[in-house]
Simulated scan of single mutants.
Amino acid sequence: MKLSESMKKNANFKSVYKSGKSLANTYLIMYVMENHTERNKLGVSVSKKVGNSVIRHRITRLIRESYRLNEEMFNSGLDIVVIARAGAKGRNYLEINSALLHLSRMHKILKETTKS
């Protein structure tokens, strides 16, 4: 079941930049803001400073896939914008996935898991 949708409108990105909380690590910057709905919206931004279009689209796909595979771990009702830093260039899936989950833990937007 798809729990989130893609953020496409520039106004949505601007509102998250303005009102959301941001944290960063070596590869990514993450802005998070509550959207008061049942679904998450994920926006990915990769600047031309990171590389050519092939590199930028690859990083975008890695971030989206990482989020998709871990989607059930995230709390719902959030607007999330992930910005790739220049350090993300040439990184593999595991490194991007680790960076995304690290920022999610720092933002405390992952569901609490009980160990049995």
Rank of each mutant, 00 (worst) to 15 (best):
E5F: 13
I59C: 05
V16C: 12
K41H: 13
H107L: 08
N97W: 00
K49T: 05
A84H: 01
V54G: 00
Y93K: 09
G51A: 04
S66D: 08
E72Q: 13
A86M: 11
L103R: 11
K21I: 14
E38I: 02
S116Y: 12
Y31N: 13
Y27D: 12
N52E: 10
V32W: 06
L23E: 14
N40R: 07
L94P: 09
S66M: 03
N25R: 11
V54W: 05
R85W: 02
R68G: 11
N70A: 10
E34K: 15
R105W: 00
R105G: 05
S47P: 07
E71L: 01
N25C: 03
G51W: 06
L23I: 14
Y31D: 03
Y31W: 13
T113E: 15
M7P: 10
S47D: 11
Y27E: 06
N12Q: 15
L23A: 03
V16M: 07
T113L: 01
E72A: 13
K9S: 00
L42C: 10
K41L: 11
L28H: 06
Y27V: 05
N25I: 05
K89W: 05
L28A: 09
R61T: 04
T113H: 04
T26W: 10
N92V: 06
T113G: 09
H107M: 01
M73H: 09
T114A: 03
K21F: 09
